[in-house]
Amino acid sequence: MTDISTGAFERIRTGLPSSPGEARLAQAWRGWQLLRASPAALTGLAIILALLLVALFAPQLAPETPYGQALDRQLVPPSWDHPFGTDEFGRDVLSRVINGARYTLYIVVLVAVIAAPVGLLVGASSGYLGGWIDTLFMRITDIALAFPRLILALAFVTAFGPGLNNAIIAIALTGWPPYVRIARAEALTMRKSDYIAAVELMGASRLRIILVHVVPLCLPSLFVRMTLDMAGVILIAAGLGFLGLGAQPPAAEWGVMLSNGKEYLLSGWWVATFPGLAIFFVCMGFNLLGDGLRDILDPRHEA
């Protein structure tokens, strides 16, 4: 007990924890060891961390404001002054791409915050309660899973009216079914387990069991699924922006910038190329990290 700090670290590292907090840290440490062994997953993690940092410090990182027009330098090719060139209003493309990270993060976080909890609650209740509730929820989910996602999102946005927030709602409305499936599958495996039986014997209500004992254990798989889904969410959001139904000009959103750049393809290839590269790298980051996390959680998948 004299040297608590190194002792605790040693216990966490060797996987012999002596308190719930240490056990959680030990678990995280094991996960990190596995993740560290996969260069692909690490690359993905690095890309997403970079996205976070760029979005957080966009005003400090961007050399200019994303909306500053300068009509005396329209469509200037990439140079030392403007590494990504300037667009048709003389705005610095690099500064706009950097600010676009904020839109992407905003979209991804909001879609996850809206769609995942709904899927989690429905799926966990469905799997734990079983019976006709399970049948009903799963029928609805299966039906919704068979729908084409992008087209439905397009129809929703047309009905709500174009705009960033409406696009986010539309994407979330089409995004919950996979989370229901994942959470239900997890809940099914635990409903007959001893510890759930023990809590039931202690007289816990169904609501309490679902919220306190089932939902937390569904989180890891749900998180992996979310990571894998994020690439798709970004692509759909960029697609809506590209069609003019998502974020609206002059917003420095990558899809909007691409759509703008489409008009100047021949006189200024850089206007469309760099936001496209940004979308591509971020999607790749989520795909790589998602694949890596899935391999860790479900080693059978790749073996």
Binding site: A40, A231, L235, A238, G239, F242, G255, L258, G261, K262, L265, L266, W269, A272, T273, G276, I279, F280, F281, C283, M284, N287, L288
Partner: peptide, 26 residues
């Protein structure tokens, strides 16, 4: 092959289209 498929998964289809237009048409 993994890299090639990853790029195909991650790049937006309209961006691929624009690049193909610039390179192979223009």
């Amino acid at each position: 092959v993994r890299v090639v498929t990853l790029v195909g998964h991650s790049a937006p289809v309209f961006w691929k289209g624009l690049i193909l237009l610039v390179v192979f048409y223009a």
